[in-house]
Design a binder for these strands. Structure first.
Length: 575
RNA sequence: UGGGGGAUAGUUCAACGGUAGAACUGCGGACUCUGACUCCGUCAAUCUAGGUUCGAAUCCUAGUCCCCCAGCCA
């Protein structure tokens, strides 16, 4: 741990007690004695990487377990071998851990329960509550009815128990090809709830399962696996998103018709939506497969792995989730809310460094050639314990191109011809001359410095309106800096069908010629650092010893740039 | 004229029959060797119409609008 890390305490937000309708239910159940000890679970399907939407569920489930002195299981819901992979199983565990949660020894897989689930399916058959259906997928669909019309009973609905048992066992034995038959619950083909119109319990799938290999030829559906898995694990409160509300009657039906070891209850909450972001696994998978991003952990991705690589600290994700709350109303959270929590977390811990992203050469004409001075710079303005470091100053420097304007507007306080500014930690300098190339572009500034202002203060008490950052030409190191912007250009990108049209062509901007003070390199991969006046950055794993690469996690708030943009918009509207 | 949910500032969430609050955002200001941070101030909401009640965001009735469901996905 470098100085500065963990220097400050928890935020006010993290000290406040969470209250939401689910926690109210848990508290009431504990108080009434209906629940003795709360058990929750986070049940992702290992068919992709976890994203910030999952973080909401993770924080909810693990958070409730923690707060109420209970337990939260990590359960991989691996009931569909055609979509699931070991890579995802590994990534999910890594990401939950990174978020700061610990499932102890309670790592489970739905596939651990395949044998038990199979037994329960036979129980249902013996009770006359399930049957093997020979209809094709298409016939089943047609006979299911519509939203307004009831379905029709399958011609195979009244097979005998013996025949059903025999057929089901043959299904398990692998005697039939994919799709030949399914096992269905016998409930009510006329139910207004389509999930109750004889839902499929088992389908034939000749596929390789990452954990059970080819041992099974039939696999339970989500509905048949989920509630019973909860019951096996003693889950008391099974939390899921709103779209499963319709499944709750079916969830309950299985638990009531089967000899299960416990009686969990399902509760639903609204999933997270974010502006400028798409959080469907379908879209994220396509972004990766279609090469729109470099991988699941592309720093522009809303995946946990992407956020981590981008330099977002886990406490920021947790704090964000806390701030957005939990409710049943569909909503879209403003990305600005997330940005705020990221900046807040980073501001507390990130060490400060100086880096010039788009260099403009400055020569201090009255500074002796060959002279080099070491100046003190603090590592963190609010944390003396973070210490300080030395920065070398010399005659030739780089400043930010944006910090100079030849013809500045009124409110521009930075460098311009004749203007004096402070070079942070160094001297006051005044711009005397502007050097241009043949194309008329500014390529160098000729300045003078005031030796009396060493360290940044004028003995005569005179003030400057701006302090700008800089590096010494011969004492700085070159680096590549990648500035990240939202992956999507619109706050409400199109859905799964046309998301590609809304991709932001400027989601990544590569600054190949950035110059850093050498101390900027003493941060580890993914460790946040603030490049002063610009934003929070972290060193990326693409770095090599002679080619450091930094990623901009997020820029600093910039009210000046905002004002400029506002004035420009106003001028345009007026003219 | 199927079933299940939901509607409170611009956004997200509180208020659980008793003064509609917070955070983010916006706006204004103070401070500042980061136009950052911090601090202070401020604008801003109960979907509609009835009803019950001393009193309604909350209870009742009737509407309106939004979301989800017709996978052998989860």
């Amino acid at each position: 741990m470098l100085p500065g890390e963990g220097a400050t305490g928890d935020t006010a937000a993290s000290e406040t007690v969470n209250r939401d309708f689910i926690r109210d239910i848990v508290a009431a159940d504990l108080e009434s004695g209906r629940t003795r000890a709360v058990v929750t679970r986070f049940p992702p399907e290992p068919n992709g990487y976890l994203h910030i939407g999952h973080a909401k569920s993770i924080c909810l489930n693990f958070g409730i377990a923690e707060e109420f002195g209970g337990q939260c299981n990590l359960r991989l819901d691996d009931t569909n071998p055609t979509k699931e992979e070991q890579e995802y199983i590994d990534a999910i565990q890594r990401d939950v851990r990174w978020l700061g949660f610990d499932w102890g020894s309670n790592l489970f897989f739905a596939s651990d329960y395949f044998e038990r689930l199979y037994g329960w399916a036979e129980d249902l058959i013996r009770a006359g509550k399930a049957y093997v259906d020979d209809q094709s997928q298409d016939e089943i669909r047609r006979n299911r009815g519509t939203l307004t019309e009831p379905g029709r009973n399958s011609p195979f609905r009244d097979r005998t128990v013996e025949e059903n048992l025999d057929l089901f066992r043959r299904m398990r034995a692998g005697e039939y090809p994919n799709g030949a038959r399914v096992l269905r619950a016998k409930i009510d083909m006329a139910s207004g709830n389509i999930n109750l119109r004889d839902p499929v319990l088992y389908r034939i799938l000749h596929a390789h399962h990452p954990r059970t290999g080819t041992a099974w030829k039939i696999y339970p559906s989500y509905d048949f696996a989920h509630g019973q898995s909860d019951a096996i694990e003693g889950v008391t409160h099974s939390l899921c998103t709103l779209e499963f509300e319709d499944h709750r009657p079916l969830y309950d039906w299985f638990l009531e018709n089967l000899d299960v070891p416990s009686r969990p209850r399902q509760y639903e909450f609204a999933r997270l939506n974010l502006t400028y972001t798409l959080l469907s696994k379908r879209v994220l998978t396509e972004l990766v497969r279609g090469g729109h991003v470099t991988g699941w952990d592309d720093p522009r991705m809303p995946t946990i792995a992407g956020l981590r690589r981008r330099g977002v600290p886990p406490e920021a994700v947790r704090d964000f989730v806390k701030r957005i709350g939990v409710a049943k109303a569909n909503s879209v959270v403003d990305m600005g809310m997330f940005d705020f929590t990221v900046r807040e977390a980073l501001n507390k811990t990130a060490l400060r460094r100086m880096a010039v992203l788009k260099p403009l050469k400055v020569t201090i004409e009255n500074y002796p050639e060959g002279q080099v001075e070491e100046l003190d710079a603090v590592n963190h303005p609010d944390d003396a314990a973070a210490g300080s470091r030395k920065i070398k100053f010399s005659r030739e420097l780089f400043i930010e191109q944006d910090d100079f304007m030849e013809n500045p507007p009124k409110k521009f306080f930075r460098l311009s011809p004749g203007m004096e500014v402070r070079l942070r930690y160094a001297y006051f300098v005044t711009c005397r001359d502007v050097v241009k190339n043949a194309a008329g572009e500014v390529v160098e500034l000729r300045c003078t410095y005031d030796p009396a202002t060493k360290g940044g203060n004028a003995p005569d008490g005179r003030k400057v309106k701006a302090t700008i950052h800089w590096v010494s030409v011969s004492h700085s190191v070159a680096a590549e800096v990648r500035v990240l912007n939202p992956l999507f250009a619109r706050p409400d990108p199109g859905g799964a069908e046309n998301f590609a049209a809304d991709l932001n062509p400027e989601s990544i901007e590569v600054l190949a010629d950035a110059r850093l003070e050498p101390a900027a390199l003493d941060v580890a991969i993914e460790q946040p650092v603030q490049f002063e006046r610009q934003g929070y950055f972290c060193r990326d794993r693409d770095s090599t010893p002679d080619h450091p690469v930094f990623i901009r996690t997020i820029g600093l708030r910039d009210t000046f740039a905002k004002d400029v943009a506002k004035d420009a918009a106003k001028g345009k509207a007026g003219g």
